[in-house]
Nucleic acid binder design. Sequence first.
DNA 1: AATTCGCCCTGTCGGC
DNA 2: TGCCGACAGGGCGAAT
Length: 309
Amino acid sequence: MPELPEVETIRRGLKPIVGRRIQSAEFGLPRLILGAKAAELTRRLQGQLIKAVLRRGKYLILELDKDSLVFHLGMTGQLTFAPAHAKEDTRFLRTVTGLQKAVGVHPVDAHTHAILHLDNGGRMQFRDPRTFGKILFIAGEDWKSHPRLSKLGDEPLDLKIESFLAKNYPSDSKRSIKALLLDQSFLAGVGNIYADEALFLSGIHPKKLVSSVKPAERTCLLEAVKTVLRDGIRNQGTTFSDYRKPDGSSGKNFERLKVYGRGGQPCRDCKTVLIKTVIAQRGTVFCPECQPLSAGKKRAISKTVDKVH
DNA sequence: AATTCGCCCTGTCGGC
DNA sequence: TGCCGACAGGGCGAAT
């Protein structure tokens, strides 16, 4: 699913649309659109300048002349950019021996729910097979006050960890640490993949209670969150099914993952079989050896420290 | 007030 | 070969 690194990669890949005007806009499935009806939206967007493409958590924001258009990619959302005269490329999604592999600009199909035609002939397309995504129309420029965005927690890559923890860590919480990482009002942008990866990197069991994670471990965990997010961005996102960069190509982070999607396989560090379970209503993979529930094993933590730095 | 749970949705995959 | 159930899960709103 598109998390912070994927959305950030998409944001960077959409640079070509900045400074262009929207010549026309088309919208499909009404239930994906919030804040305006499709017809009204089409009218309102016509002629508006795309001033900036921004990211907040997992949201992608188009700042326009007068308004803002915000996308959430849910699980399978794709935002792609096709330059003028680009040919349709039907190879965009193709399954070959169980692996989806393709590059190029995707075609308009039944899963394409929005198209922005730009004044230079280019177009941006929103495609989402499982339709968990959303398109928010926000009148005016103040998208930060929108109910869906105002509740978001800090940007993990911006924060100073020590002060963040002192101010925000819910020391009395009885939730699992994994549930906290997935909470967008705590940190914005961390999803299931990077939560599991960060917990592995910091040697913390995903089921451990928030209240029993010690201060040193908290710092370590937040450093690990930053590390896995930065690595994800560097590798241009994690593609295991639908995620694509705006040019249609895949991210390269999947093969780098240590635990996500590797349940039943040996730990890359200690060869112990990784456990797949459900925590906080999400599939969760961890290494029982590297991520002990009781804080008895110091090996994991010392290992983490030199991994992080 | 804090936390969990049910639900939305469809392509893919394993089992029979 | 083909059918079918299980599975994937972000975030909202209801329930506890």
